[in-house]
């Protein structure tokens, strides 16, 4: 005989995603893979930044890529032109990648030990902030053609990130964009954020990003050997 009753659930709504993310993170750490979750608004130059990085680091760091977009496999095709391996995830109506999708893609891609895995999230400064993918770091890319107040308008994303890359620096002479103010705004929501100013087009400032990347990958590989 069934009867009405109350069940205490007390579970986070994101607990399922977080469990998949924890599984991904364990897998990446065990295999010494540096997984980075690149987030930004559409058009910040994320794919160009990744393409340049892969070319420039060809002999220094193995890189594979998971591309997230609502539609098309254009970005994965751009990555594959560099010779790097890439998998495209189309989220359809979804506005972000989740840990379950990334787990499956990472399984298919099978990045080698000691390599870096770049996850290019759907261009959106809101939703991807909430979904942990199991990455080592979130990297937020902002371009100087956007407003300096983006970190204040979309604080969740800048609070969740460990590194902010300010891209398209080659356009600064033509704009009124105030780099100092933009960084100050970002630091207001996240005092621990590291920031770099680069141009993926001219290569200006990219060496700083490569140094960050190689240091992070080295650190990750060393930790997996200890474990």
């Amino acid at each position: 005989m069934s009867q009405e009753r109350i069940i205490q659930v007390e579970r986070d709504i994101l607990s399922k995603n977080d469990a998949y993310a924890a599984e991904n993170r364990r897998h990446f750490e065990r295999n010494g893979i540096l997984a980075l979750n690149f987030v930004s608004s559409p058009g910040s130059g994320k794919t160009s930044l990744l393409v340049r990085t892969i070319y420039d680091l060809k002999d220094r760091l193995a890189i594979s890529v998971i591309e997230g977009d609502q539609q098309t496999s254009n970005d994965a095709a751009r990555i594959r032109e560099t010779g790097a391996r890439a998998i495209q995830i189309n989220t359809g109506k979804g506005c972000h990648l989740d840990a379950h999708m990334v787990g499956h893609a990472a399984e298919d891609l099978a990045p080698e030990s000691g390599s870096a895995l770049f996850i290019e999230n759907v261009g959106n400064l809101v939703c991807p902030a909430a979904f942990d993918l199991g990455e080592a770091h979130k990297v937020v890319v902002l371009s100087v053609t956007e407003g300096e107040d983006k970190p204040l308008k979309y604080p969740d994303m800048f609070a969740a990130a460990d590194l902010m890359i300010l891209n398209k620096a080659d356009l600064l002479p033509h704009l009124d964009f105030n780099v100092g103010l933009c960084i100050a705004n970002a630091l207001r929501v996240n005092p621990r954020l590291q920031t770099l100013t680069v141009s993926a087009r001219t290569g200006e400032g990219m060496e700083a990003f490569y140094a960050w990347l190689e240091a992070s990958a080295g650190h990750r590989a060393a930790r997996s050997k200890e474990a």
């Binding site: 069934s2 009753r5 069940i7 659930v9 579970r11 709504i13 994101l14 607990s15 399922k16 995603n17 109506k93 979804g94 506005c95 972000h96 989740d98 809101v126 939703c127 909430a130 979904f131």
Partner: peptide, 23 residues
């Protein structure tokens, strides 16, 4: 609109928990 994913997750957890309790 990540609210759609959030509510899908709510329904998953709710239905799973209900079944575990024989509801």
């Amino acid at each position: 609109m990540h609210e759609l994913s959030l509510m899908e997750s709510v329904i998953d957890i709710v239905c799973e928990t209900a079944r575990q309790h024989g509801a």
